[in-house]
């Protein structure tokens, strides 16, 4: 697991994930990239890129907890997570989640579960930069719904769907 400004190479990461483990029958990976927001009307001016902020320390703890849960839930044999921070240009890679498992179903599901967790629970914030200035990206309630599909997730709290007021969010979240 790494939080870093540097780019990453999917091939190298998958090779490292697989190395020395002949019990692996499946590898699934997801790479998130910086998209042109203006294309779907989300921004008035063409986007030039993003700036990603995070909470050093909590970010790592949060990702380690989600990796533990992914391994427990899907029997994953290995997980690699890389999330970039700092300034990123259009088309840049932002995030990698790669998992290995004995069979494909666990690999596909484990990879998707980890991304659903990361989108709503890991303390990262995107700021979209355009010629008209910079603007923080709003969280989306459908991302909470995506995580909720997996049932009870220990420590998970509502993010966008928690409403404007944080009162009452995260009941029992430290259990």
């Amino acid at each position: 697991m790494a939080v870093q400004e540097a780019d990453f190479d999917l091939g190298n990461e998958v090779a490292a994930l697989r190395e020395g483990d002949t019990g692996i029958g499946a590898v699934a990976s997801f790479v998130g990239t910086v998209r042109e927001w203006a294309l779907d009307g989300a921004a008035a001016a063409p986007t030039s890129g993003l700036v990603l902020e995070h909470y050093p320390g909590m970010t790592e703890r949060s990702i380690e907890a989600m990796v533990d849960e992914g391994i427990r839930r899907f029997g994953l044999r290995g997980v690699r997570v890389i999330h970039r921070v700092g300034p990123l240009a259009l088309g840049d890679q932002i995030v990698l989640v790669a998992v290995s498992a004995p069979h494909r179903r666990a690999a596909f599901q484990g990879c998707e579960f980890l991304m659903d967790w990361l989108k709503t629970q890991a303390p990262f914030w995107k700021k979209e930069v355009s010629a008209q200035g910079a603007q923080w990206v709003d969280a989306r309630e459908q991302d909470d719904a995506a995580l909720a599909r997996w049932g009870e997730v220990p420590g998970a709290v509502p993010n966008a769907a928690g409403g404007p007021d944080a009162e009452g969010q995260g009941q029992g979240s430290k259990a």
Binding site: Y55, A166, G170
Partner: peptide, 14 residues
């Protein structure tokens, strides 16, 4: 405002 909170780097409620 939508404000989320953490205590000792774990998400928490009010």
């Amino acid at each position: 405002q939508a404000v989320r909170t953490a205590c000792d780097q774990v998400m928490c409620g009010a």
